[in-house]
């Protein structure tokens, strides 16, 4: 039976993690080590609580009415949700096709993970950090070759409008010019939806 460690299930998210009313489910486990990570608790592989797709479905279906009324659903984040593709696939089989399932992802995973999960997902919120490989490596600790590869694949295998790329201004790591260059590069690849925003360090 597929299991995953989940450290938070956050109800009634209103347009912050997808259209409509959504429940954010955040997995443990992440390949990156971002300097300003909001959810460092997700780095603990043995943290959180163990769920199966069934137990998660039983917990989140309490808000099904809001999902259907607002065309919302469940957004998987973390951590890196695309490390849990089997879990997400089984969850889709339980919830049916009316719920929207999204992932908030770095896309820094093996391509087969993306390609396995894609048929059951309705959209992607991709935090690109920065398209410059050096800036990316400095900020996250990993290179972004897989991000390029996966983003290209997604843009060529489905409707680009289902992908929103979040392009952050990261204090001390990138500049406005770096962000502008990232946006140009992403537009040239075919990305149509952007969310340019500022990391706020507290």
């Amino acid at each position: 039976m597929t299991e995953a460690r989940i450290f938070a299930v956050s109800r009634h998210r209103l347009t912050t993690d997808g259209d409509g009313c959504t429940t954010l489910v955040t997995f443990n486990g992440c390949p990156l080590r971002c300097k300003y990570c909001l959810n460092k608790v997700s780095w603990k592989e043995d943290g959180g609580r163990v769920y199966t797709p069934e137990t998660l479905f039983e917990e989140v279906k309490i808000d099904q009415l809001y999902f259907l009324a607002t065309r919302g659903g469940v957004t998987f984040g973390g951590g890196e949700p695309l490390l849990q593709t089997e879990f997400i696939k089984e969850f889709r089989a339980l919830c049916g096709n009316q719920w929207k399932l999204l992932v908030e992802t770095s896309l820094n995973v093996a391509p087969e993970m993306v390609q396995t999960a894609d048929p059951v997902l309705d959209g992607y919120i991709v935090d690109i950090k920065d398209m410059n490989p050096e800036i990316y490596k400095t900020y996250t600790g990993k290179n972004n070759a897989l991000v390029f590869e996966n983003l290209e694949w997604l843009l060529h295998h489905g409707d680009p409008s289902r992908i929103v790329v979040r392009v952050p201004h990261i204090p001390d790591y990138n500049t406005d010019l770096d962000v502008a260059k990232s946006m140009e590069q992403l537009k040239a690849m075919g990305v149509t939806n952007f969310d340019e925003f500022q990391y706020i360090i507290r």
Partner: peptide
């Protein structure tokens, strides 16, 4: 198709970063 954007404005909600700049439903 309930427009959450309109409801949020009506509630004078101080939201965090919006998901996207798309038009509300």
């Amino acid at each position: 198709g309930m427009s959450l954007g309109t409801m949020i404005s009506a509630a004078s909600c101080d939201t965090t970063e919006p998901f996207s700049k798309k038009e509300p439903l």
